[in-house]
Structure formats: C-alpha cells, structure tokens
C-alpha cells in the first residue's frame, strides 16, 4: 500500500493546507457512521435500564455501571460460550488451512481452473440450504450439537476463503523456485512442503486470521446446529430476548464483548486483514 505516488508532489501552500483540512473533514464523515454505532453499543452497555430508554439520550452524562456485564455473565455461562466460539473458530480455520493449502497450491501451480470452480461452488450456495440437511445428517450420525458438527459446518466458511487467498500467494512465488526444487530432487510433494509452504507463511497467517474472524462471526450455523454445550457467542446474545421483554443492556454488553476481540485483532493485524480481504475477493 505504499505506491501511491501522485504525479504532482504537493508543496505546502495555503491552498494545500485548505485541501488538507477538506481531506480530514471528508475523512471524519467517512469514519463517523462506524464510530457512532460502536459508541452507541458501548455506551448503552454501560447504562442502567432507565437510562437506555431516556430520550433525549444521555450521551455521556450517565452514571456508568457494569451491571449489564455482571448480569450477562451471571445469567449465562459466558466463559463456556467464549471458549466454544474461540475453539470452533480456531479448529475450523486450522482445518481449513490444512485442507485448503494443498488444493490452493495445485490450483496455482497447474492452473486447475475446473478444480477452482468446483471448490468455488461452496461459496456460491446459499447457507440457508444447508441448515436443514446438515441438521438431519448430523442427527443421523449422532454428531448433532457436537463440536465436530459445528467445525465441519464452519469449514463451509473458512475453507473457500483460505483457498481464495492462498492461490494468490502460491502464484506470487516465481515458478523457477518450484522447478529448481524439483531439479534438486525434493520431489513434487517435497516441493510443496519444503518450498511452497515456507515461502507463503504470511499468506497462511493472513488467511488464518480472516478465517478465524468469519467463523467467529457466523450466526446461522450455530443457531441451528449448536446446543447448550456448544453454543457460540453470537447465538448466546439471544438469551436476553424473552417473551415479555428485551434486555437491551445485557445484550449490548454481550455485543461489546463479542466485538472487542475482533477489533483488537484488526488493530494488531491490519495489514493481514487488508491483504486477505482484498485477495479473498479478487479471483
């Protein structure tokens, strides 16, 4: 992202200063919607029930309280759900890598268009079409509600993404390197393990992180396929929807807690996310 050399190098003239101000003003407008939604989520999570409903809203002048967090964690086994989310996301992204890497490699190396297309169908099919059949299938084999069932279902998300991203990385390796490896007697499988993989570590980190995020975020699969033991965080928020009331406070507390790890991850690994999202799409 560094090659943004403009044909003209701006010098600091009054006009330039004005333009910088305009730029930051536009930037502010671009960032405001995201900022506002997150501000509203976090501030609501810190409000008492009555303050949540007060109009005009108390922007910052409310008495902050952690009651909602306390209630959220008391009423539900939060740690268990957090573990489930993290475990399922980790396992499905690692498995996605293990299975996706060799396929991405041969697609890149041998230009296997047809294989690429057949794997791509997994990305095109609407997820709704999987819910009922997966449930029936997993019930019949006695896996329903289990971690393996959820991890397999989440592979639908993580696996195509991994392949998409990794094909780019394997293609970026000059083919001379692969060929040299073969000539040196590494063998074809050896080339994959000893040359292709070490050269694409960045790619693995990138696709791993993104696969993790999208699995962590997934709602539909866990909504239908998980049970009390394996429920993930995005589904657990709905524990606070009752027949006679919506508990907005604890829901916002949950929403905040679910989102924060992802935001931290973005800040730490911005570069990977930028590359990954770009590559994951372009193909």
């Amino acid at each position: 992202m560094t090659s943004s050399d403009q044909p003209r190098r701006p010098r600091m003239r009054p006009r330039t200063v004005l333009r910088m101000i305009a730029l930051y003003a536009i930037l502010l407008i671009l960032l405001l919607p995201a900022g506002f939604v997150f501000f509203w989520m976090v501030s609501s999570s810190l409000k008492q029930g009555v303050d949540i409903y007060t109009m005009p809203p108390k922007w910052l002048s409310f008495e902050p309280t952690l009651d909602n967090y306390e209630r959220a964690f008391e009423r539900t086994p939060f740690l268990r759900y957090a573990f489930n989310s993290a475990f399922i996301a980790t396992a499905s992204s690692l498995l996605g890598l293990a299975i996706g890497l060799p396929a991405a490699y041969t697609i890149a190396r041998y230009n296997q268009k047809r294989l690429a297309v057949s794997l791509l169908t997994a990305r095109l099919l609407p997820a709704v079409a999987f819910l009922v059949p997966f449930f029936i299938l997993f019930t019949q084999v006695g896996l329903v509600g289990s971690y393996p069932a959820l991890i397999l279902a989440h592979l639908l998300v993580t696996f195509p993404l991994t392949v998409f991203i990794m094909v780019n990385f394997f293609e970026a390796v000059p083919s001379e390197l692969y060929e040299a490896g073969e000539v040196d007697g590494a063998g074809k499988i050896g080339v994959f393990f000893r040359i292709a993989l070490p050269l694409t570590k960045t790619g693995m980190v990138t696709s791993g992180i993104l696969a993790f995020i999208f699995s962590w975020n997934d709602f539909k699969m866990a909504l239908v396929l998980s049970n009390a033991e394996t429920r993930t965080l995005p589904v657990a928020v709905y524990n606070f929807v009752h027949e006679a009331s919506l508990e907005w406070g604890p829901m916002m507390a949950y929403a905040t807690v679910i989102t924060v790890p992802i935001i931290v991850l973005t800040l730490l690994a911005q570069k990977h996310i930028v590359t990954g999202m770009t590559m994951g799409s372009i193909k």
Partner: peptide
C-alpha cells in the same frame, strides 16, 4: 440437564430437531 433457548429460535429449532427425529 436443562438446555434453554430464546422463544424465537426455539420455535424454529424444535421442529427441525423433531423432523430429524432427534432423541437427544
């Protein structure tokens, strides 16, 4: 062992479970 769900998702999930003849 009690497994609870919110009403809306329960309404959706119970019939799917029964359709799959879930005995868990």
């Amino acid at each position: 062992e009690i497994e609870t769900a919110d009403v809306t998702s329960y309404r959706q999930n119970l019939p799917v479970r029964l359709t799959a003849r879930a005995d868990d």
